[in-house]
Design a protein around this nucleic acid. Structure first.
Ligand code: ZN
Ligand code: ZN
Ligand code: ZN
Ligand code: ZN
Lengths: 146, 146
DNA sequence: CTAAGGTATGAAAATAATTATTAATTGAGA
DNA sequence: TCTCAATTAATAATTATTTTCATACCTTAG
């Protein structure tokens, strides 16, 4: 937990910015909710418990900042809002999501078998791929039984 | 061009709905702009040339309808609005997009090599995949030269 | 023909997520 | 302690999208 906070502090310093209580509290909530995919409003509500005076706009600004700093990644599940999760950092690319159309459950996929596909695309389209976002839609095992 | 319009007419009829001039004009614009990824506002402006009395709300309603009818697909390029393109129909899954972070160009990828990956995921996670959305971010050949 | 009942529409109002503005506060460094 | 830029909360403004609502348009029954 300390590590990520220190990384943030360093990256902020490089930019001439500082690690404020609001920023610390926001990152803490995201760290404490690894595995969840919280949206801005949900993060705001949780952060307020530790930091009741924080404003929603600050949460928006902080999340934007954390994304720029490569600390969190923004996820779009086509539900009308942005969601966030911590970047693990031990992978070159972020993991991917299975979205159940039956119960809206989100399952994380660890494997990253897109490398081969990326190589083909890079060759065929002369395009230098930096990142990708992949979502799979379908039915989870629970919903399938019904 | 006639074919897709007829398909729409049939699917609308099944639902007890009708093919109105506004709906025809909207679909025509999308058909005429194959390869583009127009957003709602852009579609509205183009449709107005043929159908000046159309309202923006009708364009929103029509695009929603076309998506339900499986005639167009909605694309989210993280630029704050929905974009649409015609579904080719000759593929099981829609094609994917390379998004250049240098010039915002969008390149379409025809190949679909995710089948193997999908099979693995279906086995490992017992998840029945119906569709997927894939975006690649990076630099196009032009931007790479700079 | 005429009324009834449903669908569709444009205009305007309402929502929801996000961003900009502003004036006050904070805190690191001289 | 003083200075000054960074940060913040509160609020207003934006933007994309949806909903409301009164009206227009069809199709069909009488
Ligand atoms: Zn499910
Ligand atoms: Zn995740
Ligand atoms: Zn480019
Ligand atoms: Zn496309």
């Amino acid at each position: 937990m300390l590590e990520t906070m220190d990384i943030l502090k360093d990256r902020l310093k490089e930019k001439g910015s500082k690690l404020t209580p609001q920023r610390r509290a926001t990152l803490n909530i995201i760290l404490q909710n690894k595995g969840e995919h919280l949206n801005t409003e949900e993060i705001y509500e949780l952060v307020r418990k530790d930091c009741p005076e924080i404003g929603l706009a600050t949460v928006y600004r902080t999340l934007q900042l954390l994304e720029e700093m490569d600390i969190v990644s923004r996820i779009n599940l086509d539900d009308g809002c942005s969601r966030y999760e911590i970047k693990t950092g031990d992978e070159d690319h972020q993991h991917h999501h299975l979205i159940c159309q039956g119960c809206n459950k989100i399952i994380e996929v660890k494997i990253d078998l897109l490398d081969h596909l990326e190589q083909e695309i890079e060759k065929e389209y002369d395009f230098d791929i930096k990142d990708h976002k992949v979502k799979f839609f379908g039915l989870c095992s629970d919903c399938n039984k019904k």
